[in-house]
Lab assay of single mutants.
Amino acid sequence: NQASVVANQLIPINTALTLVMMRSEVVTPVGIPADDIPRLVSMQVNRAVPLGTTLMPDMVKGYP
């Protein structure tokens, strides 16, 4: 099973992602692959992302 990117904390709308905000976890449904975490750094979320939420491609501005 492939690990996905999961919010490690509440991420407010328009926040630029940092490594501490994300963790990898095997979840269903599958979200953004954990391998993409380095690419996500400094990209902004377009909505508030609660703790434990799987990051989906449509939540991150400019992804992929």
Rank of each mutant, 00 (worst) to 15 (best):
D58F: 14
T28Q: 13
T18S: 10
A7V: 10
G31M: 02
A3D: 14
Q2N: 12
K61A: 13
L51H: 09
T54A: 07
A16S: 09
E25A: 12
V49C: 05
P57Y: 13
M43E: 04
L10F: 11
Q44G: 04
Y63W: 14
L19P: 05
L40I: 10
Q44T: 15
P57M: 07
T15L: 04
N1V: 15
Y63I: 04
V45G: 00
S4W: 02
V49N: 02
M59L: 05
P12V: 05
V30M: 14
M43C: 05
V6C: 04
V41H: 05
V6E: 01
S42Y: 13
L19F: 10
A16Q: 08
T18G: 04
V60Y: 02
A34V: 08
M59G: 03
V45P: 02
M21L: 06
R23H: 04
T28F: 10
I11G: 00
V45L: 12
G62R: 08
A16G: 11
L19R: 10
P33K: 08
M56G: 05
V5R: 01
P64M: 14
L19K: 06
N8T: 15
P50C: 15
L10G: 09
P57L: 05
R47N: 05
M59N: 04
P29R: 04
G31A: 03
R23M: 04
G62H: 15
R47S: 07
A7H: 01
D35F: 09
T18V: 07
L40Q: 00
I13D: 09
T53M: 15
S42V: 03
P64A: 14
T15W: 07
R47Q: 10
P50M: 12
R23A: 05
A48Q: 14
T54I: 10
V30I: 12
I32N: 01
V41L: 15
K61R: 10
V5Y: 02
T53G: 11
V41C: 14
G31Q: 02
D35M: 13
L40M: 06
L19E: 04
M21K: 03
N1A: 15
A7P: 02
V41K: 06
V20W: 14
T28H: 08
S24N: 09
L10I: 11
I37F: 03
A34S: 10
S42G: 15
R23T: 05
P33S: 13
A3N: 15
D35N: 07
Q44H: 13
V49P: 01
L51M: 14
D58A: 10
M22A: 01
L51W: 14
M59Q: 04
V49Y: 02
M59D: 12
V60R: 01
I11L: 09
A34C: 06
V45K: 00
T15G: 05
A3F: 12
N8W: 06
N1T: 15
M22L: 13
T28R: 03
A48E: 11
V20R: 10
Q44D: 04
M21F: 05
P29M: 05
V26E: 15
S42M: 15
N1D: 15
G62W: 09
L10D: 13
V20S: 14
V41N: 04
N1G: 15
T28I: 07
R47A: 08
L17N: 01
M59K: 01
I37W: 03
M21C: 03
G62N: 15
Q9I: 06
I13A: 11
P57T: 07
R39T: 08
M21A: 04
L10W: 10
V20I: 13
M59P: 01
D58G: 12
P29Q: 04
T53R: 13
T54S: 04
L10T: 12
Y63K: 04
I13L: 12
N8R: 14
G52H: 11
L17F: 02
P50L: 15
M21G: 03
L51D: 09
S24D: 08
V26G: 04
P38I: 07
S4V: 02
A3G: 15
P57Q: 10
V26I: 14
V45R: 01
P57D: 05
I32A: 02
V30G: 09
A7W: 03
S24E: 08
P29Y: 04
L51N: 11
T28N: 13
A16V: 11
P29T: 06
G62A: 11
M43T: 04
N14T: 05
P29C: 05
S42F: 11
L10P: 10
T18R: 10
R39W: 07
R23N: 05
T54G: 02
E25K: 10
I11Q: 01
M59F: 14
I37M: 14
I37A: 09
G62T: 06
N14V: 03
L55N: 00
S24P: 07
Q9V: 07
N14D: 09
T54P: 08
V60D: 01
M56S: 12
V30R: 05
L17S: 01
V49T: 04
R23Q: 04
Q2P: 15
A3L: 11
K61V: 13
G31T: 01
Y63Q: 05
M56T: 13
P12A: 08
V26T: 12
R47E: 10
E25S: 09
V30D: 15
M59R: 03
V27T: 09
V27S: 04
L55I: 11
P38C: 08
R23Y: 04
L19N: 04
E25T: 10
G31C: 03
S24M: 11
I13W: 13
V41T: 06
L40S: 00
N46S: 14
L17I: 09
M56F: 10
N46K: 11
M21W: 02
N14E: 08
V27H: 03
S4N: 00
K61F: 11
M59Y: 08
T54H: 03
N1R: 03
Q9T: 11
P64V: 15
P50N: 10
M22I: 09
V5Q: 01
V26R: 04
V5N: 00
D58C: 15
A48N: 10
A34Y: 07
V45S: 05
Q44E: 08
S24G: 11
A48R: 12
V20Q: 10
S24H: 14
N1E: 15
P64L: 15
D36N: 11
G62P: 05
Q9K: 10
R39K: 15
L17Q: 00
S4T: 04
L19V: 06
A16T: 08
I13G: 09
G52C: 09
L17C: 03
R47I: 08
M22W: 02
S24F: 06
L55H: 01
N46G: 09
P38N: 11
A16F: 13
Q9S: 08
V27K: 07
I32R: 01
S42D: 11
S24Q: 13
L40Y: 03
N46E: 08
G62V: 04
T53Q: 10
N8A: 14
A3I: 08
P12K: 07
A7I: 05
P12G: 07
N1Y: 15
V6F: 02
Q9A: 12
L19Q: 06
T18A: 07
L10V: 09
S4I: 02
Q44L: 09
N8F: 06
A34G: 10
P38A: 10
L19T: 06
L51Q: 14
V27N: 03
T28A: 11
N46T: 15
L17P: 02
V60G: 01
A3M: 13
V5I: 13
L55Y: 01
L51A: 11
A7E: 00
A48G: 07
L51P: 12
I37R: 08
A34R: 05
S42E: 06
G52W: 04
P33A: 12
I37G: 04
V6H: 02
P33Y: 08
R23S: 05
T53Y: 14
P57S: 14
P64N: 15
L17M: 08
D58Y: 15
V20K: 14
P64H: 15
L51T: 13
K61C: 11
V45F: 00
N14K: 06
T15Q: 09
N1P: 15
Q44K: 13
P38V: 11
Q44I: 11
T53P: 00
N14S: 08
N8G: 10
D35K: 06
V5H: 00
M56P: 01
A16M: 12
V26K: 06
R39A: 10
G31E: 00
R23V: 05
R47C: 05
I32E: 02
S24L: 07
D58L: 11
G62M: 08
P57E: 08
D36E: 12
M21D: 03
A48V: 12
D36H: 15
R23L: 04
I32W: 03
V5W: 03
Y63E: 04
I11M: 04
V5M: 02
L40E: 00
Q44Y: 14
P50S: 11
M59I: 05
M22G: 00
D36I: 08
L40G: 00
A7Q: 01
M22Y: 02
Q9D: 09
N8S: 13
T53F: 14
T28D: 15
S4Q: 02
P12R: 07
V60Q: 01
R47T: 10
P38S: 11
A34I: 08
I32K: 01
K61G: 06
V5K: 01
M22H: 00
V45Q: 00
R47V: 12
P33R: 08
